[in-house]
Simulated scan of single mutants.
Amino acid sequence: MTSETATLFSATRIGAIPVANRIAMAPLTRNRAQPDRTPSPLAATYYAQRASAGLLIAEATQISPLGQGYLDTPGIYSPEQIAGWREVTTQVHARGGRIVLQLWHVGRISHTSLLPQGEVPVAPSALPAKAKTFTAQGFEDVSAPRALALEEIPALIEDYRRAARNAIEAGFDGVEVHAANGYLIDQFLRDGSNKRQDAYGGSIENRCRLLLEVVSAVAGAIGPERTGVRLSPTTPANDAHDSDPQPLFRHAVQQLDRIDGLAFIHVIEGATGGDRDNLPFDYPALRALFRGAWIANNGYDRERAEAAVESGYADMVAFGRAFIANPDLVERLHQGIALAEVDQDTLYGGGAHGYTDYPSAT
């Protein structure tokens, strides 16, 4: 928990991870991985440039070939990918930074052209999402999914466990399980996408089962003190919706708190990258249920971030796109230096331009 003297720029610990300040870099998909899904060599430079963040949360990274949903996103399931990520963590650590990897399975937010031959996206239920994804042809409607069979779920959980171990082998300080933004675990959580009638569907308890089994497996593999979770209770991203999110996420956080020593929960407040007040929701009530570190995200500026930390509501505040154009964001916030604007045309795909060539202010 945040102490009374905490400020946005004071040091703390997030689980087992010592951090120099309370500013996190949120995971940001940049679609610059190589054809074998290894990180681009430029990725090491990109993350090292931003290592002054208290905690870097590396971009969403698929746990298996079936987990991919966008063109040129990295994986963490092959020796080559582990080696590529090790270059990133080595450079970040050389700059004194701390970095965790976000573990990702997109579920139904995918396209057959991105998956192994003959495969279709998987989901809790065979319900197509009203969403698009980025393929070699540009933005396309996602493909219709099939429902995961009950007997497939243990292997899925094992993929998460293996990915977490691979992340530690690659030198990461921990992992964040991606359970937000309408991807696979979030699809299981919500009654808008989960129509199952087995142990993983129906009641809130059943819909939370996959989340809790995955996080427990990851925590068991690498330690709860190096394990975090990302949630997005009210986001409409990727056709995510639930009839009553407050009790759903109350139960999820209560049960996550029972995983003793879990490092952090990272919450997107409101619509991802959009309106913070898109639906009524009591985030402080959620925060009160969890004993670990709380990372708040979405629409924060310096003033709002300082208030969140100093009040004890948040232990860290995550900034997303501001880190793209401002590799020295921590210093700019600390010194009150104006922020550079993001070049929207270079967000996804490409090379160094719009990736590693944003200058620092000084």
Rank of each mutant, 00 (worst) to 15 (best):
V342S: 13
G336Y: 07
R321F: 13
P327Q: 11
P359S: 05
Y348A: 08
G354A: 03
A340M: 10
N326F: 12
L339N: 03
A340K: 08
A338E: 12
Q344W: 13
P327M: 10
V330D: 09
Y355Q: 02
A352I: 01
Y348T: 05
A352K: 04
A338S: 14
H334P: 01
N326L: 13
D343V: 04
Q344V: 15
L333E: 12
A322Y: 15
E331M: 14
A338H: 09
P359I: 05
G351K: 03
I324E: 11
F323E: 13
H334L: 11
L347Y: 10
V330F: 04
L329W: 04
V330N: 07
D345W: 06
Q344G: 13
L339K: 08
T346S: 09
P327V: 09
A325W: 11
G349R: 00
L329I: 04
R332A: 07
R321V: 14
L333M: 14
L329G: 04
Y355K: 03
A338M: 08
A325T: 11
F323R: 10
G349I: 00
R332T: 08
F323I: 12
Q335G: 08
Q344C: 07
Y355D: 06
L339Q: 02
A340I: 01
Y358G: 03
Q335L: 14
V342G: 10
D357M: 00
D343S: 02
A352Y: 00
L339R: 05
R321H: 15
E331Q: 15
F323Q: 13
T356P: 07
A322P: 12
P359G: 07
A340G: 10
G354M: 01
G351R: 04
G336M: 02
Y355W: 07
D345I: 02
V342L: 14
E341M: 06
L333W: 07
D345C: 03
Y358F: 01
L347M: 14
A322H: 15
N326P: 08
V330A: 09
A325F: 07
L339A: 06
G354V: 00
D343E: 06
E331D: 15
G351I: 02
L347A: 08
T356I: 05
R321P: 13
D343C: 01
Q335S: 12
N326M: 11
Q335F: 08
F323M: 13
V330R: 07
E341F: 01
L347T: 09
G351C: 00
H334C: 05
T346K: 07
D357Q: 00
A352E: 10
Y358M: 03
